[in-house]
Design a binder for these strands. Sequence first.
DNA 1: ATAGTACTAGACAGAACGGTCTAGACACTG
DNA 2: CAGTGTCTAGACCGTTCTGTCTAGTACTAT
Lengths: 181, 181
Amino acid sequence: MSPARPARDRLVAAAADLFYRQGIHATGIDEVIARAGVAKASLYNNFASKDELVAAYLRDALERSRRLFAECLTEPDPPSRLRSFFDRLAAGATRDDFAGCPFANAAAELGPRDPASSVLVDFDRALADFFARAIDDAPDSPAVRRLVVCYVGALHGAKVRHDPRVVADAADLALATWSRA
Amino acid sequence: MSPARPARDRLVAAAADLFYRQGIHATGIDEVIARAGVAKASLYNNFASKDELVAAYLRDALERSRRLFAECLTEPDPPSRLRSFFDRLAAGATRDDFAGCPFANAAAELGPRDPASSVLVDFDRALADFFARAIDDAPDSPAVRRLVVCYVGALHGAKVRHDPRVVADAADLALATWSRA
DNA sequence: ATAGTACTAGACAGAACGGTCTAGACACTG
DNA sequence: CAGTGTCTAGACCGTTCTGTCTAGTACTAT
């Protein structure tokens, strides 16, 4: 049925790059297909609408996040899991195309009624679940919610201040709040 | 010269409401002037462009934030200043039109090259300055940067999870990180 | 009374948008 | 060879957007 569709993959990759860096509403269909090197008809053969492409971009980003979570969970103990996670965030924040958390950015644009916003809820759950597994606690526990605060503050702070040190500050905060709990 | 311009004020108020709740790109000029009860020409007599209206909206929000900061700084000691601040955030997060931090939302939409984004930098500085005064520390100190992380995490977390408890979690984190430092 | 100012109502233009459609190239499979 | 599915190139449509323009109204100061 769907053996391998390079056009679709190139579309998602181009959408990821442009939607992430420029914003979703600020990026037009024509720019996406030009970046992907793909005809407009190929877009609408693979996706019913621009919103579907947005959802596909977010689902792809969610999948990458899940893999990141899984890698961090291979560490033996809670502090090294948290350290591994925030180290990876810090590394990402030094890239020149860093623009914060893609899900936070999308949440600011989409609004709660948008169909693609269900992926944002999925990410939120996946993040809480990751932190819960990382520190062996319940996903709704205050300790996990504090770690989510650290994550959000880290990425957004590093974005608006153009300063990856903020991620290190948030990591300190995360480690401290875990060791205290 | 400019004794009192109700049309301009109504425009900024309408823009604040709509841009904040729906997003900037998702809100058209026609919707703003309809909400303001104002003719389109009045908009362009007071603002050169939509971007100017966006900037005016953000400057107005920045001014309100500065007043909030000043009120919190009347508290006698650092913990009560921080508690006062996060209590006000928590109160705001329970409102049904709560949509997170207006500057964070605008940052996700505008991109760094937008002229209005200088107001975002101003807010960032004002926030760091407030925390620095609140805990009697330098605006670039790690303690202040950790508090900024708490602020961002509080508002964004409360937004995407629709749960004002997140603000309380962030407040705990903020108080703890200050008392430890 | 008259001039100036701030406003309203809405038509209008130009561009950009999302999305559809036709025509045809290429590769693979029977 | 014929047929099928995926692709490209780009014209095209209707809508929506920002921004301009005309015309006329209400108020105020001199």
